[in-house]
Design a protein around this nucleic acid. Structure first.
Lengths: 230, 230
DNA sequence: TATTTATTGTCTCAATTTGTGACAATAATA
DNA sequence: TATTATTGTCACAAATTGAGACAATAAATA
């Protein structure tokens, strides 16, 4: 974590979406003894592609390779430069201010969102943080810097992309019911969808494979299980 | 243009779209005595918002304030790091390699596209360049680094946004005919559009104001002139 | 075992949007 | 005055979407 290994003035932040209990969630880190909550992020090595740096960071936090990832905006306002926050974080973690002085400089941050299968992940804190945990998108703690703006823009971009990209595939397990899929769409859009219209639309896309094996255990007609045809 | 005034490792590039003679065009700079063609770009001052830096750069190239601007992607592959190109540019311009050594470092570039009214602009070269000129989007010279990729992604984003943003407003003069507007859409999409459907759709948006004053001079029924209501 | 409950998969019909061509109107030209 | 090229609008077909109806059925209940 030496200055000479990393590009200066540039960082990245990730909004990692998961779906569980009918709600959309994201990963938030809490720093040691500071009460500061933030998005997982990191810095770009001098010999590393930007996209690879983000994947490296996500691998450390989630253990996953091959995560679905979309870059959506780069945040570069001077208002996001608040060195006292990083200073507090470093001091609370007993890090040398001289050695890590470069972290107190201004950073422009490239923001990505990731979609992952909630159950595949055991979130891992990094050296500076106490925890890395899922938070319901509607019940986030107060976040440092402009991270609330980053989350808001990530969610807006996800909504805008909902019809164009295969969102469900990345947020659900391999097999799921039509109702599971609808719940994902409703959580992202923040509103109810008409069941029959949704079912017709999804089937007409011809990207779903229907399996005869059915999900049982409830007091009603058993739904088909589906998977995405890739 | 001193290192201490600017953020390091971060730059921006702009794809400036204009519309003339039925074709979509963009601004390209040519550097002194190098045969290098590139997008207009620049660097971010330490006390300056990223978006403001881009506006400053565009103002220098076009003379315009209040340009319509959209950030669309940040390019950060190591493959775009080719210091010998910047070195050639500096040497050809008789600039001191010591003083501008920081320009030979790796840069991650935040890319924007701008939409402007072609007739409002007299493109201005900067100190390092011979020319800043309009090129038809289908007849660009070979561009340095990954600038061809940047242009391709800008055009794709513009197409994707065509239905959601008021593209025509920024590429046309204040008053225009329905046919002018259709030509803009066709140039961006790269395909023909059905006239009656387009007209119906545009009118149904209720963002066009029809003026009784008509455009004359052709051997057929004179079309209405329109402007955007905002 | 028979009945009830909740949800699923599919169908139908209405409402809306889009595709396609027809046609009268008209400014300039021949 | 007739012709030409293009415009604004309409009419109808085709496709998509909205909204509800209904039979099917796995489990719970009586």
């Amino acid at each position: 974590m030496d200055q000479k290994d990393f590009l200066t003035n540039i960082a990245f932040d990730s909004v990692v979406f998961g779906f569980s209990g009918g709600a959309l969630k994201i990963l938030i880190m809490e720093y040691h003894n500071t009460g500061f909550f933030a998005l997982p992020g990191g810095f770009v090595q001098r010999n590393e592609n930007l996209n690879d740096a983000v994947r490296r960071g996500l691998k450390e936090r989630t253990g996953l390779d091959n995560i679905y990832l979309e870059q959506f905006y780069t945040f570069g306002d001077t208002a996001r430069y608040k060195p006292e926050i990083m200073q507090t974080i470093l001091e609370s973690g007993n890090y040398s201010l001289e050695k890590y002085e470069w972290l107190l400089d201004r950073f422009i941050s490239v923001a990505y969102y990731a979609l992952i299968n909630y159950k595949d992940v055991v979130p891992q804190p990094d050296a500076l943080s106490d925890s890395c945990e899922w938070y319901d998108i509607d019940a986030l703690p107060p976040l440092i810097l402009d991270h609330a703006d980053i989350v808001a823009k990530a969610l807006q971009t996800l909504r805008d992309n909902l019809d164009r990209k295969l969102v469900g595939m990345n947020l659900l397990p391999a097999r799921f019911t039509m109702n599971d899929l609808q719940k994902v769409y409703e959580a992202i859009l923040g509103e109810k969808i008409r069941r029959t219209t949704f079912q017709r639309k999804m089937l007409s896309l011809e990207i779903l494979k229907r399996h005869e094996k059915q999900y049982l255990g409830k007091a009603h007609k058993a739904p088909y299980l589906y998977s995405f045809e890739v």
